[in-house]
Each structure stands twice: as structure tokens, then as C-alpha cells.
């Protein structure tokens, strides 16, 4: 079986993470922000699974499971918030929600 270079997997995870980060930083639509967050979480999970394969150990995948749980909970709460926000302000633009300033 041919082997995959370890760092290639990690670099893929890094690139995916960075893509998600770009999305969080640039998009104004909150739905896209949430999706970008999902991408970042998923990239973290990928890094764990790669490490798990590298060390031939199952604990990396256990961590991936935890991240999965976290993502599920986060999406549930985040979507609830989006619904509430759309009801109140009739927009999905997060720049509108800037009342909590110093």
C-alpha cells in the first residue's frame, strides 16, 4: 500500500481551516459565517484524524467525535439565533447588530 505523506494531510487541514477563516472574516451574511465556522471545525477534525492515522492510534478519532458533537450543538444554537435575528431585524447582515459597543 502506497503511503501518504503525513504533512500533506495536515496541510490540507490547514488550507481548509484558512478558507473557513477567510469566510468568517469577509462575509456579512450570518448564514455564510456559520457555514465558514463549520468548515473550520471540520478542518480541525481532519487534522485529528490525520494524526490518528499517523500514530496508529484511535484517540484522534475520539477527539473527532467530540468535535462532531460540538459542531452539532453549535449549529443548533447558531441556527436558532439566526431565526431569532431574522424575526427581529428582518435581515441576515451581522453589521446591523452592532449595538453592543463601548
Amino acid at each position: 500500500m502506497e503511503s501518504i505523506p503525513y504533512e500533506h494531510g495536515l496541510i490540507l487541514a490547514a488550507i481548509l481551516f484558512v478558507c473557513g477563516l477567510v469566510g468568517v472574516l469577509t462575509r456579512r451574511n450570518i448564514v455564510f459565517v456559520l457555514m465558514s465556522l463549520e468548515i473550520m471545525l471540520n478542518a480541525c477534525g481532519l487534522a485529528f484524524v490525520v494524526a490518528s492515522s499517523r500514530w496508529q492510534h484511535a484517540e484522534g478519532q475520539v477527539m473527532f467525535l467530540m468535535i462532531l458533537t460540538l459542531a452539532a450543538a453549535e449549529v443548533a444554537v447558531g441556527l436558532g439565533l439566526i431565526i431569532q435575528m431574522y424575526r427581529r431585524f428582518h435581515t441576515v447582515d451581522i453589521s446591523v447588530l452592532n449595538e453592543m459597543k463601548g
Binding site: 500500500m1 503511503s3 501518504i4 505523506p5 503525513y6 504533512e7 494531510g9 495536515l10 496541510i11 490547514a14 490525520v50 490518528s52 492515522s53 499517523r54 496508529q56 492510534h57 484511535a58 484517540e59 478519532q61 475520539v62 467525535l65
Partner: peptide, 23 residues
Amino acid sequence: VLFTQDVAISPVEVGVLDISVLL
């Protein structure tokens, strides 16, 4: 940081059993 090491992964399957024993 990542390019400082060069180790290859030989994909050996880590099965459900291993994970659930840990979980």
C-alpha cells in the same frame, strides 16, 4: 511548521472496536 518533518503515513485501518474501547 509542518514542513520541518517528513514522515509518511501508512494507512492501517483503525476500526470501530478500537474507538469504542476508548470511548
